[in-house]
Each structure stands twice: as structure tokens, then as C-alpha cells.
Computed example of a mutant assay.
Amino acid sequence: MREIIFDTETTGFDPASGDRMVEIGCIELINRVPSGRTFHAYYNPQRDMPSAAEAVHGLSITFLKDKPLFEHGAQELLDFLEDSMLVAHNARFDFGFLNHELKRCSRAEISLDRMIDTVAMARTLHPGAKHSLDALCTRYGIDRSHRVKHGALLDAELLAQLYIELRGGRQIGLSLAQEEADKAYRVEPAQDAAVRPVRPARVFMASAEELERHAVFVATLDKPLWLDGSHPG
């Protein structure tokens, strides 16, 4: 099973009002395990960068102005995504910008049937709790100390760890860890250890005197259960 965890950075909140996607980062999971394959790209938005947005992700127009337009890198991105399910945090936001960019360059939009939203998953698992990426990383013990500003690939890497946890990955990890621990503590015989002779099993039988003493003791018992016909077997 192939899934893609992805995150985007943008100039704002609303593509319909002219905001553009400026960065995308993707992580490939195979059977809920990172394969090591990633996709990362910056795009020239052909517009200014609001100071509020730059404060979040640190991407300036000076940095982005020599980056390719989305339309020139769209096919490379689509080749990486293939037809896999796409996982994002607050996924409608990221899908909205991705599909807006695809529509701008006359590409087919990605169906929302391929969308998996980790915010929706977290709300089901932890109703009433905080569901930001930072809050959920803290809840699941995911190290985010290196996350000074938002970055699409970095956030996708954190989200991949979170998604695996939301799917029950920690239990799987614990069982694997226990197997490794069992291997580590398993004592194997030394190659040069002496071979001990196999001894026949010892047979223990009561002596005639012991059997007689047992019979005398049983005779003193008052209505033993094994002599009660109403008691099973």
C-alpha cells in the first residue's frame, strides 16, 4: 500500500483571492513505513509575499523569484504522487491550493476521494483536545525541537510520524522493539561448549510402605468428594 504524506506553504489562506502555493514537500510511505523517497520543490508565486506569511515559513520573494513556476514543475510532482492516497494535516487547505495550481495550468484536479485528513483523525481519537501539528507531536512524543519555522518537507516528515502513530504505529513499534530485546537477551550456547550426555528420565514410584500409609490416611477422611456419587468424575 502506497501513501503520500504532503504539506504546502503558501502566500496566504485563500487561493481564490490570489494566494499561491510556494513550496510542497512529500514523503512516500509503503505499508505505513517511510521508504526514503521524497519530493520537495519551491515555486515562484509571481506576486508579493505578505509579511505575516513570511513570518510563518521564512520564504521571501527574494528567495523565490528565481524558482520555477508551478506549471513548469507540475508533471514531476504528478509523477511522484501517482494515484496514491494523499495525507495532509487540515487536508482541505492543502488540497485547495494544490488543485488551484493544477487548474491554473490546465491540469486535472486531484479527487478529494484520495484525501486523508489527520486533523479529522485526531478529532475522532482525541475529542476536545488541541489538534495542531505541534500539539499532536507533543502528545505522541515526536521530537520537533528542530522546527523553528514551518517548512513543507520538515512538516511532512513530522506528519508522517504522526500519521503512523494515529494509525496505531506505536503499538507495532513496541512489539518490534520487544522482539529485538528478546533477541538481545537470548543466550546462545558457546560453540565450544561441552556436549552433555543425554540421561534417561528418572521414574519415581511409591514404595509398598508408602502405599500402606496412604491407605490408612484415606480411611480416616470423612466423606471424601471422590466417593460422593453426586460429584462429577
Rank of each mutant, 00 (worst) to 15 (best):
A177W: 09
G151V: 09
G173L: 01
H131C: 07
L98P: 07
I164V: 10
F80A: 01
R144E: 00
A129G: 10
S145G: 12
C105V: 06
T124C: 11
D94R: 08
E157V: 14
G169N: 06
S145D: 12
Q178E: 13
S145T: 14
I164H: 01
A177D: 10
E157P: 11
H100D: 11
D83A: 11
Q161I: 01
A120W: 09
H89F: 04
L98G: 04
G169K: 09
Q178I: 13
T124S: 14
R92H: 12
K130H: 10
V119M: 15
R104P: 07
M121C: 06
F95V: 01
K149H: 14
R139N: 00
L136W: 03
D117S: 13
C137W: 02
H131Y: 11
E82M: 09
T138R: 15
I172Q: 00
G96N: 02
G173H: 08
R170E: 04
A156T: 10
H146S: 14
A129N: 15
A177F: 14
A152N: 08
H150W: 04
K149L: 09
L153M: 11
A135T: 00
M121N: 01
R170P: 09
A88T: 05
L166I: 01
G96E: 03
A122G: 08
R92N: 13
Y140M: 05
I172Y: 00
A122S: 14
E165Y: 10
G169S: 10
G173P: 05
L102V: 05
G151Y: 04
L102H: 03
R104L: 09
G128M: 08
A122F: 07
S106N: 14
K103H: 13
L162T: 04
L136M: 03
D113Y: 13
S111M: 06
Y163C: 03
F95H: 04
S145L: 06
